[in-house]
Nucleic acid binder design. Sequence first.
DNA 1: CGTTATCTTGATATCCCTCAAATTCAGTGG
DNA 2: CCACTGAATTTGAGGGATATCAAGATAACG
Lengths: 256, 256
Amino acid sequence: MLRGHLQEVTVPRPATTCDSCRRTHCGLFDDDISERSNEQLLLGRGDRLEAGQEVGCMTFWVIAGGTAASCTNFADGRRQIVSIERTGDVVCGLMSGENTQSWLEALEDCEIWKFDLSADAQNLRHDPRFLAATFSIVHHRLARSQDRISALGRLDSQERVLLYLAEHAIRHSAIDPIAPVTTLTMSREDIADYLGLNAETVSRILTRIKKSGLVKFLNRSEYVIPDFGAVERRLPVDLHDPRTSCHARLLLEAFQ
Amino acid sequence: MLRGHLQEVTVPRPATTCDSCRRTHCGLFDDDISERSNEQLLLGRGDRLEAGQEVGCMTFWVIAGGTAASCTNFADGRRQIVSIERTGDVVCGLMSGENTQSWLEALEDCEIWKFDLSADAQNLRHDPRFLAATFSIVHHRLARSQDRISALGRLDSQERVLLYLAEHAIRHSAIDPIAPVTTLTMSREDIADYLGLNAETVSRILTRIKKSGLVKFLNRSEYVIPDFGAVERRLPVDLHDPRTSCHARLLLEAFQ
DNA sequence: CGTTATCTTGATATCCCTCAAATTCAGTGG
DNA sequence: CCACTGAATTTGAGGGATATCAAGATAACG
């Protein structure tokens, strides 16, 4: 089920001509692969995608462009972004718990491909390739989730924001290794809901980080990390190589 | 690799005569099943089990009794309990990220069965039953992890402790549905490291909850929830039925 | 250029942590 | 059975960190 105003949007795509992009994103942008999709969804910022009853456990959404978020709401409206979904990430209805209100929300204009495999469910349930692919997707999400548990439980606000900036920069440079500056696509409130903070705190921490010189801001949304090592030294965790995070190809290969 | 002083310990086992236990724990306690294990480990409180290089991704630990914790440490020593492992839970080396220092730690005396399947790895990688079982295990852990992200990000300390007491009581009653009181097996510090708080705060919140009457404490470690609905109304989340959490049988069936 | 959303900054309150001391509890040996 | 001991827990005082509320500044957009 699709909520919100769904309009035609233009989504920036990484150029397929870049070898590094192709490797990073598993050639997701080749047209022949995209044709296997049941449906292409173009979401504008704020649009929501909810997995209703009818969707079942065999529907997958592949992020082809833009940034989305797996969100949950508590009964009283408190929002938490459980996971940020970026180009190449695979989301499926399986992810959400039964009782929690959760949905996929576009944090900026998004291009998403929907794959409904329920017609072939009986076969896929016994197909080693499909099982291995979905295992790999879910396992990788688990590893990332556990890192986030540690971060939310034990990092203070400055560490969380700094970690976010660093990880986002790594991810960004993986998508476009030539770009010298990183663009912050999420709003302060989205960042806050991702980090378990509040929007004003995020803003304050950002100016503090700005003043410290660890991160240089060209404007509100573009920044450069002049000395990545200095940022790493400030953080008690290791920063991951995001290149391992794209499982779209695995999934696509499994049912081609 | 095994760390710490490993002594013979007596581990309380649920009686196999109880039908409800058998259902809940998938008959894990039948001796014929336990014989398939490579090794039985008896851990005393504080003992650690670390997945070294040699273990690889095909070693599984099944908790047969007691409580253990998947822990991580930051470089500066801050500890976070990522997940609590109880009877019937399956832990594997796959779970930990590459760069994070992480281990399995006994929070009380524990009985753990180790299954090393690396000899049969080539076959298992293409075995639909094995793949489905491991998928199910990892998927369930992911769902629980995501709930914890929301809890750590958006619940205050009182809500976290109350949620912990409620979930622990549910889990406890699943293991022994006859027991009228729930026993708190984890120390205040362990609870704190699980909830992203500190031990003194946990203690303070517990006395506050005690005074509120929501939970009755018989002594430091035993409690009763007189009105479960009242606790639920205080929490903005739904409490889960833990019965779905035992995947040991799935795993065992896959390579029997 | 005006309107609106977003972001920043300030003042204040609250929550939770840190440090320190007192208390309870489980063993242990007399 | 009782004192002794050490660990765990509880309680208190104080401070730092983050949230809340409110206002102003900046950017985005028609």
